[in-house]
Nucleic acid binder design. Structure first.
Lengths: 226, 226
DNA sequence: TCAAAAGTGTTAAGTTTACACCCATGA
DNA sequence: TCATGGGTGTAAACTTAACACTTTTGA
């Protein structure tokens, strides 16, 4: 930077906090880690960290996520900046919240211990500190909204999935039960869901057809509605 | 603050930029000011400023708006944080974009000259600097979305308005024409729009009935759909 | 008297919802 | 053979979209 015209203006620590969603055994889950700095050392928090000089906010969020999950390809989106003056008793920090979706099959479990991370079901959360509960609620609402008009929920599933898995995922996120026939009709009416000849026998004796989502075709038209 | 645990982490200038919408003569407008600092001194930018020590982001946005428009009651909502490393050639600044809606009838025109401010029609904008065009586009999309399921557009109108004015406002924001009978049916079917006995003769010889929006009733149920 | 905006209903098309039984299989 | 999840169609209710003429009045 040749010069800085704003040297007299105040400066702040800036952090990112990432609400990371996963899905397993019919439950929507969120990834937490035990904090390793004061204050609240040892308590559970969403994955976060301070933004470094050479990083955008998105870079920082992506770095935090990949270094602690091993996943390089995931959905990551900004939620909102949180700036209450005393939101962090450890010092003034402006934190930008993100949410991310990842397929737990890709998740590197060995990093979990190394970074003291832990998946928790969304319906059974502990006390959260700072404004982390606000961030989490905002993330859930955004996710509930967004899965109805974009296919981001598929990021929480393996590449091939059954319609039953997909319906249980939507039910877990929306926190309501859906009609099986109407659900399948809507899905199959969209040209992006491709039935493969693979059969998943893990969930039932009969076995269920596995589908994939055709992102190329989706990107041409982007007509999605659930 | 008793102590600061994060003293070794990097710090940044943090700013707010406000995309302020107004509506007049059937046109959606945005408020700009001539920048009074380097770089780009004199060029048009959205209203913005640096976040001060005793302020949240929302406080800063609200301060910038009220000091330069004279309006104290307006709709203000966070859009997104922008953090590209070289987004501002004057120094590294992380900027949080907001958008706001105001009724131009309440706007203090004398402040306009004092702060070098200027309303421009959305369909006739000049070159914008930094990432201000991105912010503006984001604001427009958010506004287009949000007026279909909340009554925020009414913040752009005087307290009493005609259905014609309201339709022209929706058309200006959505950038498409709407069917008059369907529009009026939807509006009048909602119990929040109250027909007054005032007649606005300014827009036609015949005169049009003026309506108000009942926010109390809306806050009880919040069922709004356009 | 006419130009200009206000005001007003109906019908067809499309979408959403509700609902119940048979199928295939492994244990 | 039976328990379990997979798979399938239709009709009613509701919502959305398309469409044209009469009214009022000031200039």
């Amino acid at each position: 930077m040749a010069q800085n015209y704003y040297a007299h203006e105040p400066k702040y620590n800036v952090a990112v906090d990432c609400i990371i969603f996963g899905f397993e055994e019919g439950k929507l889950q969120v990834l937490f880690q035990h904090r390793n700095i004061e204050p609240f050392n040892g308590e559970l928090t969403p994955l976060g960290g301070f933004v470094q000089q050479d990083e955008t906010l998105e870079d920082a969020a992506y770095r935090v996520l990949t270094e602690r999950t091993g996943i390089e390809k995931l959905f990551l989106e900004q939620l909102e900046a949180f700036s209450e003056i005393n939101r962090d008793p450890g010092g003034r920090v402006i934190s930008v919240a993100f949410y991310a979706l990842l397929n737990k099959a890709d998740y590197d479990k060995s990093l979990m211990d190394q970074f003291n991370c832990k998946w928790l079901n969304i319906d059974n959360l502990p006390t959260l500190y700072f404004d982390h509960m606000k961030m989490l609620k905002k993330a859930v609402v955004r996710l509930q909204d967004k899965i109805t008009y974009t296919p981001i929920a598929m990021k929480l599933l393996p590449e091939a999935f059954t319609l039953g898995q997909m319906q249980r995922l939507y039910e877990a996120i929306l926190n309501e039960s859906l009609d099986k026939r109407n659900f399948r009709k809507k899905v199959c009416d969209m040209p992006y869901f491709i039935k493969t000849d693979k059969i998943d026998k893990s969930g039932s004796r009969r076995g269920a057809a596995m589908y994939t989502f055709d992102y190329d075709k989706y990107n041409e038209q982007k007509l999605f509605h659930m």
